[in-house]
Every structure is written in C-alpha cells, then in structure tokens.
C-alpha cells in the first residue's frame, strides 16, 4: 500500500529559519507494517538524513516514542492501518512533546530522568534490614506489577497537559513510579514519601485527572490511576491537608446528605463561603457567577430537599463504609 508521511524535522545546526521544517514522503509498503517500519523504510531507501531512536522493535525497550497524528505513541507498536482509515490519508509524525528535540524525531530525555530521580525510585528498607529475605504476598504486588511494566518510553510525559503549562509537575511516569515504592510493603519510608509527594510543588494534587496518560501509555500502566491511589494513601496516612483532599470530602458528604451534589460547597467560587481569606480571593469569580445567576445560593439553605430515595443512598454509604472498615481491621 502507498503510505504518505509528513515528518517534522529539526536540525540544530541549520542556520536561519531552517531549524524546523516538514518533509513529505510517499512510500510503498506492505499493509501490516508499523509506523517505525515505515520510518526505517524512509531512512534506508529515501532519505538517509532522517534521525529517530529505536532498538528492540518489539515494544520492550521504550526507545521509539513519538507523536503520531497528534498523540504520543510507541511507533513499533502502532500499525499504519491503525491510523490510515481512508486511502491516501497522510500520517503526521513529530517528536514527543514537553521535551526538547535533539534532532528530527529524537527527544532529549534528560527532564524525564530527572523527574524519575526526584521520587527516589529505589527501595528504602528499614534499618537494620530483615534477617532473611522479605516475604511479600501476591496481592500486595499485584498493583505494583502493573507499574513495573513501565518501559520509560516517555509517551505519557509527552502528552501530559499539566506539564505543558507547569514544568515543575512531576508528571505521570515518575508519579506512577512513586506509587510503586510507596505501596511496596518492603519500603520503610512510606509516610515520608507521601508527605513529600503531597507537599512538593508539582506533586500528586496537581494532576487534573484528564486520563491522557492512561490513554496513551502503551503498557497499560495507567499512571493517573496510580496517582489517585497515592492521593488515597496520602489521605489515609493523614498527610493530605491541601484543598484537594478537603474538596473531595465536601463533595462526598454532600452526596450522602442530599443524594446530589451541593455546588455551594463544590464550586470553587464558593469554596470559602465560611472561610474569609479564601472567599476574598475567590470574590471576583463568585460575584460574576451571582450576577449571571450561576451561583445556586438557594442550595445552601439548610432545608434544601434531598432526593426521594435518600434513605437508600445513605444505606449504600453505610454498607460500603462498614465493609471497608471490616476489610481493613
């Protein structure tokens, strides 16, 4: 089949406006090939100057991450036919985002590794260590195994929208890795780790839960789910005092009380109605909403009616919580 590629080029040594440009290639290849195969075809037979990184070609080494059709992907795991739906459709290949480009499709992973470093990605066992080897249950390792599947391709970091606007964000891969150590029964620094991850700039409460990393990760690490686990562990360990945690509690309480959400508490514009400093900082937003009729002030009245089935909703709350308590005791 004929495949049309539009490839972003970057030559740091080029002068003038030539540093970044696009090259178009049309190649004739078998249908089953991957994006990486297609790039190899280009490099070997059409344009030897095209630079990209790869090694195993089997979704193991994590070298071949790029942005294809606007999304981070492992190119040796993405087939051309996954993307080309209509004959002659062009495939756009660019280097990963959020990281500097060294040449063409090769990104500088320095920032990726420094974030990895930031979460102390090794076990810190109790001192003195155990007399003999640690015995760990299968259950305890199950969740961790998924995170250990990370091949450090950087695709999630490439596409994380928070990192785009805040370089201090520790970003999905390293936070997922942090969970792998926080939740490891052999690690003795659980609380310290959680404190750090909660308090540090760019920590676990800065994730917007956008699911982008879950979507793009080729190894199903689901970094965002790991970040949510970290949040829950932080709340449990009593180290999460930020608004993120409080916000969650207020929300859940309201559903228990009314069966519905009480925006007067959830809505950021009103988060501090009973908290003067907070209220002042949110004042412009709250006033704007009030003026547009968007602040449901009547919802704050104590006699706001819950839904008809509220007693059943509350029963579900009680049951789930009792079970949870029993499970943990």
């Amino acid at each position: 089949m004929k495949v049309r590629l539009k490839v972003k080029r970057h030559d740091p040594e080029a002068h003038g406006g030539q540093a970044s440009r696009y090259s178009d290639y049309t190649i004739d290849v078998p249908e089953h090939i991957t994006i990486l195969d297609a790039l190899l075809e280009v490099r070997d037979y059409h344009d030897g100057s095209l630079a990209f990184r790869y090694s195993c070609r089997s979704a193991i080494c994590g070298s071949c991450g790029m942005r294809v059709d606007g999304r981070g992907r492992l190119t040796c795991k993405t087939k051309v036919t996954d993307l080309v739906k209509t004959e002659g459709q062009e495939i756009l290949v660019e280097p990963m985002g959020n990281m500097p480009v060294i040449k063409d499709l090769v990104t500088d992973m320095e920032m990726y590794w420094s974030k990895m470093d930031q979460v102390t990605p090794w076990l810190q066992p109790a001192d003195p260590g155990p007399e003999r080897e640690n015995l760990v249950s299968h259950e305890a390792m199950l969740d961790l195994a998924q995170t250990m599947g990370c091949i450090h391709c950087g695709v999630c970091v490439s596409d994380c929208p928070v990192l785009e606007i805040d370089k201090s964000f520790i970003a999905p891969a390293a936070l997922a890795k942090a969970h792998r150590f926080v939740d490891d029964p052999r690690d003795a620094k659980t609380k310290e780790r959680l404190e750090e991850l909660s308090a540090v700039k760019g920590g676990i409460w800065d994730c917007t839960r956008c699911n982008m990393c879950v979507e793009v990760c080729p190894k199903d690490v689901r970094p965002m789910d790991r970040i949510m686990q970290l949040r829950e562990l932080a709340v449990k360990a009593g180290v999460a005092s930020g608004t993120g945690a409080r916000h969650g509690e207020a929300f859940v309480d309201s559903v228990q009380r009314l069966g519905r959400l009480d925006e007067m508490r959830l809505l950021p514009a009103s988060v501090g109605l009973w908290n003067a400093p907070r209220l002042l900082s949110e004042m412009p937003g709250a006033l704007r909403m009030l003026r547009a009729g968007k602040l449901p002030w009547n919802h704050a009245l104590p006699w706001r009616k819950p839904i008809a089935g509220i007693k059943h909703v509350r029963r579900l709350f009680d049951r789930a919580r009792r079970e949870k308590k029993e499970a943990s005791s």
Partner: peptide, 20 residues
C-alpha cells in the same frame, strides 16, 4: 430519584461506594 454519579471523586476514594 437518581443520585449523583460521584463525578469520579467518590470513585477516587471509595470505589465500591461509587459502583453502588
């Protein structure tokens, strides 16, 4: 008579409750 879906906030902390 429906109840709030939990908006992902409840499932974040109490997955079973959110499922119920």
């Amino acid at each position: 008579d429906g109840n709030c879906t939990g908006a992902g906030v409840i499932s974040e902390h109490e997955p079973k409750l959110a499922d119920l």
